[in-house]
Amino acid sequence: MSKALQETVALLPAEPCCPSLTERELTVQEAELTAAMFKALGDPVRLRLFSKVASHPDSEACVCDISDVGVSQPTISHHLKKLKEAGLLTSERRGTWVYYRVAPSVVAAMGQMLTLK
């Protein structure tokens, strides 16, 4: 994802990024943003990590709680970085651990986009 698109993702309010696919055609920016999100989730390890964070109490998890996905720690860090770059996760360092949280309303927004009206 380009730096400009990353900055746009960071500024988005906690509401759907894009309309339902049946509502109207997506703009170029909406399509790029949505494609980046779905591309990030297109990897099985990333999808599992995202699921672990999303299903964890308070939709927040320490990296130490989600690292059992069958790959090395550097690979986990790489995948978590990709999820953050796509705007799907946010993170906060607390002492030596990093805590990940699902970005506000992202799951509902992606679901709404795929809803047929």
Rank of each mutant, 00 (worst) to 15 (best):
L88S: 02
M1D: 10
P74C: 09
M1T: 15
P44D: 03
S72N: 03
L49A: 03
P57W: 15
E30C: 02
A108T: 07
Q73A: 12
I76R: 00
P16N: 09
L26D: 00
S2A: 09
E92W: 06
L5H: 07
A61M: 07
V28M: 11
L114A: 07
R46A: 12
A86I: 02
L83H: 01
L11Y: 03
P19Y: 00
Q73R: 15
A14E: 04
A86T: 01
Q6R: 14
I66P: 02
P74L: 03
L26T: 02
R94V: 13
C18R: 05
V69A: 05
V71G: 04
A61G: 11
V53L: 10
I66D: 08
R93G: 04
R46D: 05
E60A: 10
K81D: 10
P16D: 13
E23K: 13
T22N: 04
K117Q: 05
G95C: 04
T75S: 12
E85W: 14
T115Y: 08
C62T: 08
A14F: 04
V69C: 07
A108N: 09
S55W: 13
K39F: 15
L80P: 08
K81V: 13
G42P: 03
A10W: 04
S77N: 12
E92H: 11
P104L: 12
A31T: 06
D68Y: 14
V28F: 12
K81I: 08
W97K: 07
R93S: 07
P44S: 11
V28G: 06
G70Q: 01
V98I: 11
L12I: 05
A40Y: 06
K84V: 12
V53H: 14
L49V: 05
F38V: 06
P19I: 01
M113S: 02
M110Q: 05
S20M: 08
T96F: 13
G87D: 06
S55N: 11
D58R: 14
T75D: 10
R24T: 00
T27N: 04
T8N: 11
L21T: 11
R24G: 00
K39L: 08
L41K: 07
S51R: 14
D65G: 05
E30Y: 00
L26W: 00
C18Y: 02
V9M: 13
E23I: 08
H78L: 15
G42V: 02
I66Q: 10
R46I: 13
T22K: 07
T75N: 11
L5G: 09
S67C: 10
K117N: 11
L49P: 00
V53D: 08
E15I: 06
T96H: 12
G111Y: 09
G87I: 08
A40W: 05
L11R: 15
E92S: 13
S59T: 12
K52D: 05
D65F: 10
L21N: 09
S51K: 10
V71L: 00
V71C: 06
P57I: 07
A54W: 15
G95V: 01
T75P: 01
W97L: 15
A36G: 00
Y100C: 03
F38N: 09
K84T: 11
K82N: 11
L80V: 05
V9K: 11
L33V: 06
V107G: 10
L89H: 00
L47Q: 10
M37L: 08
L11S: 15
E25I: 02
